[in-house]
Structures are given as C-alpha cells and as structure tokens.
C-alpha cells in the first residue's frame, strides 16, 4: 500500500499535460496553464486552455483534469465530482467576488454575484481517475483548488500578463479581462 502524501506531484502534472497534449501548437490568443494540488488526501492536476481575443474577451475552450483519490468505489461519481469541482473553482476564479459593506455581504443573490453559466463552461472537458488501492481520499472538493492557478497560468501564457488578483472579472459583468488582469 502506498504512503499517503509522499507521491511526487510530478506524476500528476505529467498525466494532465499528456491529456491536454501539452506542447501542441495553439491557435493565436490561446494559452495553456497547469496546476497541481493535494487536498483531502487526494491529488488533482488540472490543465486549462483559455482563448483571449483582441478585445480581452476570455473563453475556456478546454479543461483536462486527473485525480488520484486512492481507492474509488464509484468511478463515474468521482468523475462527475471532479468535473463539477473543477468548474466550481473556475467559476469562483472568474467571478466569485464577495465583499462586505457595513457588516453586510453585498452579493446577496445572483444578480450581484455572477457564477459560471452553460455558455461560459468549457466545450471540451476530460477527466481521468487514477486506479489505485491506496486508502480513499475525498473526491468532491479536490478538483477546486488547482482550477484557479491553472486558469491564471493559462491567461499568462495567452496574454503575457500575470493575474495578481481574483476574481478575474470585476463585478461590473464585463466580459473582457484586459483591464482587470493586471490590477
């Protein structure tokens, strides 16, 4: 039985990169970003592809994610959780700003708190669950942490500008990132 917490993260980085065909020629304005994280005794590596057009409009054409959660009882469920957890992370990285004013949260409902919708979700999404007999880890949350850094890295690859603050989109519902990325 393998030891928890000592596996090289490199394994997962390499798998996610392979899934995304890292190194392939990308269309103009596209960029790939990668991130890996261990949480809830589970490893997840994620690659995000972004496309940023000349006016700063961002789309996410593809996401690839690999998870090692040790022993998995219901692989289809784990796959669905990895998809959802990853997109949940992307949604928060893109839009999930929470601010308070006079002790009260400003974003009381969806009009003020934007979340990822169908039209903003990736057209291509591939997830893989590593076969393992190690003790089981979580499958719900671990998809979330690597999503934001993978996205931010992809934006850097596409635009040359580092994201220094999240969320990437301001609360003004802008669909353009140009101004916000460097703020």
């Amino acid at each position: 039985m393998k030891q928890i917490g000592l596996l090289p993260l490199e394994t997962y980085v390499r798998t996610a990169a392979e899934m995304a065909q890292w190194g392939r020629e990308l269309p103009k304005g596209h960029g790939l970003g990668i991130a890996v994280h261990r949480s809830f005794v589970t490893y997840v590596a994620t690659v995000v592809e972004v496309a940023v057009d000349g006016e700063g409009r961002l789309t996410i054409p593809g996401v690839w994610s690999v998870m090692d959660a040790g022993t998995v009882v219901n692989p289809r469920h784990a796959e669905a959780q990895l998809e959802g957890g990853t997109l949940f992370g992307l949604s928060n990285a893109l839009f999930g700003e929470i601010t308070a004013k006079r002790g009260e949260v400003v974003q009381a409902n969806f009009p003020a708190w934007r979340v990822m919708r169908m039209n903003e979700s990736p057209r291509k999404m591939e997830v893989r669950i590593v076969e393992s007999d190690a003790p089981p880890g979580g499958v719900g949350e671990p998809g979330t942490p690597p999503a934001a850094p993978a996205l931010a890295n992809a934006i850097f690859a596409a635009t040359g500008t580092r994201v220094r603050r999240l969320p990437i989109f301001a609360a003004d519902r802008s669909d353009r990132i140009a101004k916000e990325v460097g703020r």
Partner: peptide, 14 residues
C-alpha cells in the same frame, strides 16, 4: 450599479 444591485436585492429578499 449600486442602485441597480440594491433594487434587485430588495426584491430578492421578498
């Protein structure tokens, strides 16, 4: 924006 959001929030609170 603030006004707009406030109006919606008020309605949402019903």
């Amino acid at each position: 924006m603030r006004r707009f959001a406030l109006g919606l929030i008020l309605a949402a609170g019903c």
